[in-house]
């Protein structure tokens, strides 16, 4: 199989004031690959994934996404974000719009699609995330799990080439985590390129092609899941896994 890189990070560094959030990060994500990033909190996972669509700007190194080099205020940034979907921990649905409007506003206003075309796509994805009947409600009327599935559908409606997930289940009640992960597993089966920051190791085991373990702003280990979960190369990853798999 020919590997086409879609995200290339070379020596990426990022500061928040004096705090160094990312140090010398090298990572390649290929087309169709599912990468799961894990690590203790504060290890820079979210910062890294937010750099991938320019929500944070990296300070040093080189970052190429979908053939474009990211720089602050580069002219292609808006175009890039249209092709890179993002799902947030806090859902970030637009509370003043209905579910359907949440889904069609991007395709209509940004991609300039007709309302009919945008609605058709939106209903297809609502079907896929299994909440077609909620189209006319507002986000606040939905459960957390439903809201996160809407957020996934909203990102998919832009027909992205990569999907980024920033701790998509961390803000959910335990009984709703499953329904969101199911949708993500199905999405993985369609061949979507996915980069997922999560602590859900069951999900990682099921879909990941590559596991990335971060600590203190550095990538400590990159290995396939079978190695990572049974015989992690680094001592730190072993300790981390022991801690979260204990329960």
């Amino acid at each position: 199989m020919v590997q086409t890189p879609i995200i290339i990070a070379e020596g990426v560094g990022k500061y928040f004031g004096d705090f160094k959030a990312l140090t010398d990060v090298d990572l390649i994500v290929n087309q169709g690959e599912r990468v799961v990033i894990c690590g203790p909190s504060g290890s820079g996972k979210s910062t890294l994934i937010r750099c991938f669509n320019g929500l944070e700007n990296h300070d040093t190194g080189r970052l190429c996404v979908d053939g474009m080099e990211l720089r602050e205020d580069a002219p292609g940034m808006r175009q890039l974000r249209q092709d890179v979907g993002m799902v947030f921990q806090q859902f970030n649905l637009f509370p003043h719009l209905t579910i359907l409007e949440n889904l069609i506003i991007g395709p209509m206003k940004v991609r300039k699609q007709s309302r009919a075309a945008a609605e058709a796509t939106a209903r297809k994805y609502l079907e896929r995330v299994r909440i077609p009947e909620q189209a006319d409600k507002r986000p606040a009327q939905l459960s957390g799990g439903q809201q996160q599935r809407v957020a996934i559908a909203r990102a998919l409606c832009m027909q992205p080439r990569v999907m980024l997930f920033d701790e998509p289940t961390s803000a959910l009640d335990p009984e709703m985590i499953g329904e969101v992960l199911d949708v993500m597993v199905e999405l993985a089966e369609t061949g979507m390129t996915m980069v997922v920051v999560t602590h859900e190791m069951g999900f990682a085991r099921k879909v990941a092609d590559t596991m990335v373990f971060m600590e203190a702003g550095r990538i400590v280990e990159v290995s396939p899941p079978e190695t990572f979960f049974t015989a992690p190369k680094s001592q730190r990853a072993r300790v981390f896994l022991d801690q979260i798999l204990e329960h």
Binding site: L55, R78, R81, N92, F94, H96, I105, K109
Partner: peptide, 27 residues
């Protein structure tokens, strides 16, 4: 209006003006 709303608008490729008009000001 929560910062997350700006980020969500940016993540679907909206410009600053579009984010103001469709997302931030109505809220």
């Amino acid at each position: 209006v929560a910062v997350g709303q700006w980020e969500a608008a940016a993540s679907i490729g909206m410009s600053r003006a579009q984010a103001y008009r469709y997302i931030i000001l109505p809220q």
